[in-house]
Design a protein around this nucleic acid. Structure first.
Lengths: 192, 192
DNA sequence: GATTTACACTAGCGCTTGCTTGGTTGACCC
DNA sequence: GGGTCAACCAAGCAAGCGCTAGTGTAAATC
């Protein structure tokens, strides 16, 4: 057995699993369906993953790592004004929906299906991502760019952004940049 | 069999099912678990519901009808200013989380588990609810209370509100009225 | 050339699933 | 006091589930 390594093969299988989990939901996706999608037999699947739960954890971990990397890169390469940083974070968040949508949908919808150990491990990753957001929102509050309760504002913003996976069409006419711009304009008190 | 009636018994069973669906998720909730929670045997369940899918549809329908009724009542009893109406809608939305949280969580998380016919029927109900929101947002836009793209603003607001089921604690110190006030203040351009 | 490693296969075990069947119970009704 | 009917039950079926055991094999490593 080959558990918990980072082989390219395993990464590719994880990507394919993410798509099925989105289509069918984790519980409805059987190991036989996963295997067929991957072009192998169901028994062979357990060479790469200890059990079905581990596939879910791998999908969510990959998505969160990706989001974290994109957000960090965006913060490093943007202007250091609170408004620019706010917008960079929003755009980065929406860009992950382009590059890795399946994993993010799974992370949002199937989080509760993780067993306690995996949830514990992954919640640290997610906390790191949310900490980035809260820092940026704190700066915007301090600068007087936005007003209100720190806790509530960050929850409302995260909600608005996470909800986009329900309706955002990457093939449509609106770019992540447009959406980020509109969102920042909505919550800041200056005209867009 | 007794399908698709509105007996009080069925309503009570639906309420109990909602709780289990929230705790375990629809797919993980077995008919035996449902029956035990209801104090009957699993076979008896199919006297009240044609199949497991119909229980899910009943839960979601009850929650959406409830939300629609509360929102309509709130709009009728509030001031006719755009700001008051916006706030009344937000507060009504959050109040449904107090009175009928389980059903709403199920509607948000398990919508995709509905079969096509049920989804078609229920999406009309949901559209009616969202139409209320879009009308109120249109008024606020026309009045210059908020600015921006009509479609995007309503999606962002719905996202912020729907996301509250993830973190809002009804037993905490913040009332639905507080939250509604803060949200409206965040998106309108006047100080709170 | 022998051994190890990575990856895949076949076959199926033990269990749970949603749902059905055929029948019982007790309250109400003309 | 026979008939009706909603509500429930015991028993179980057919299908599908996650996962395991044991084996084959080609490539890499020694």
């Amino acid at each position: 057995m080959n558990v918990m390594n980072d082989s390219p093969r395993r990464k590719e299988l994880t990507r394919q699993a993410a798509q099925l989990f989105v289509q069918e939901g984790f519980d409805r996706t059987t190991v036989r369906m996963l295997a067929q999608e991957m072009g192998i037999k169901s028994g062979s699947l357990f060479h790469h993953f200890r059990d079905k739960q581990e596939i879910l954890a791998a999908v969510i971990e990959a998505g969160t790592q990706n989001a974290l990397a994109i957000a960090r890169a965006a913060l490093e390469s943007c202007d250091h004004t609170p408004e620019a940083r706010l917008q960079a974070m929003a755009r980065a968040h929406l860009e992950t929906l382009l590059t890795d949508r399946n994993a993010h949908v799974v992370a949002l919808y199937e989080w509760r299906r993780l067993d306690p150990e995996a949830r514990d491990h992954l919640s640290h990753l997610r906390d790191a991502y949310e900490a980035l957001w809260e820092a940026v929102i704190d700066e915007a509050l301090d600068a007087g760019l936005i007003h209100g309760d720190r806790f509530l504002v960050s929850r409302f913003v995260m909600g608005a952004l996470n909800w986009t996976v329900r309706w955002y069409d990457p093939a449509g006419s609106r770019s992540p940049d447009d959406l980020a711009h509109e969102l920042v304009a909505m919550i800041t008190r200056r005209p867009a």
